[in-house]
Structure formats: C-alpha cells, structure tokens
C-alpha cells in the first residue's frame, strides 16, 4: 500500500500533497486509518498518538459503510468504505470472524505527504466483526455506483456533521484508551 513507513518520510515518494481527508483501509492483517491534515498542530499530533480513540460503525449496506472516528479532543469525523472499490481481496478479512485485528493510525501532513505521527493498537473482536458483517453485506450485493453515490450525497445533506450521523445511526461503537 505504501512504499515506506518511517516517521518524517513521505508515505509515497511520488506524491507530495493530498486532500485533507480520513481514509480507512481493511486487510487480512490490519485495519488502518490514515488521517491527512495540512500542517497538523501539536495538539492534533498528540491526539493521534495518545488521545482516546472513539470509533463508530454506521452501516449503509448494501452500498457502503461510514466509520465515525474521534481522535482525542477532536470532533467526530468519518471515513467512507466501499468494499467494491477497494483493490484488495477482502475475503480473508471477512472470513476471520471472531479474531481481533491490529489497528494502525497514521497522521500524514496533507501538504507534503510526510508521515508525522502514528499509533498502534488492537480493535475489539465485536467491533471488528461488526465491520466484517457490514463489508460482507456489501460484497454480497451487486455494486451500484450511482445508488452508492446518491446515498453518500443524501447522507451528507441530511447529516451535516459526523457526530449527528454517528449519534443517530451507529450500530457498533468502541473506545480505545490513549
């Protein structure tokens, strides 16, 4: 997924900028959150490294899922995951039901692509299984990019903040202590 992973280095030597965003990557070995922030402040870095990490799954099967994320003192934000659009085979991820998975959080400066901070942990089994079930439901359905796009647009129109979305529709939540 990345050419190298070393603090102070670009995560991809070929790219020097990214849009500010939150991305979720799922694989057989790892659940990874990549936070792209422009010139992250010391407080934001500390929140990634040691803040309490709140996670909330909002299932939008059969189209996609939203993962609500709250890093330390930061407000809720969310990442969209569409199983049909990932380049990796998710079969192994789905079939490991009952196993916990490693979690990696990367903070990347969106203005230069440099890895600023990271954090490692483990996701609770129940929460991981809830994500597995949501992903399996997506893969079991025929992919409809137009319907998915309409659903995402509609969701952001109806819920202007991630907190509102999480508060009303989170089907599984967990908190990982700092």
């Amino acid at each position: 997924m990345y050419y190298s992973l070393a603090l102070g280095q670009r995560i991809d030597p070929t790219r020097t900028s990214y849009p500010e965003s939150l991305q979720l990557h799922l694989s057989e070995q790892l659940v990874e959150l990549v936070v792209y922030l422009g010139e992250p402040s010391a407080e934001e870095i500390a929140d990634v490294q040691t803040g309490a990490l709140g996670l909330a799954l909002v299932d939008a099967a059969p189209h996609c899922l939203f993962l609500g994320v709250r890093l330390g003192t930061q407000p809720w934000t969310d990442a969209i995951f569409e199983a049909h659009r990932t380049r990796h085979d998710l079969t192994g991820f789905i079939e490991q039901a009952g196993d916990s998975l490693a979690l990696r959080v990367l903070l990347v400066d969106a203005q230069n692509g440099i890895l600023v901070a990271w954090r490692f942990g483990e996701l609770p089994v129940d929460f991981t299984d809830a994500i597995r079930a949501a992903v399996a439901a997506q893969l079991a359905a025929t992919y409809d990019p137009d319907a998915t796009s309409a659903l995402i647009d509609g969701t952001y129109q109806q819920f202007p903040t991630s907190e509102a979305l999480v508060r009303q529709f989170a089907s599984a939540t967990c908190t990982i202590a700092g």
Binding site: A60, A61, P62, A137, G154, T155
Partner: peptide, 13 residues
C-alpha cells in the same frame, strides 16, 4: 432489505 441509514436517506431523498 437495507441498513437503517439507507432507508432513512431513501425516505428523505
């Protein structure tokens, strides 16, 4: 047929 959020958005849109 669908997750609660999807139903909610479909009802709205």
């Amino acid at each position: 047929r669908v997750a609660p959020l999807v139903k909610h958005i479909e009802l709205a849109t």
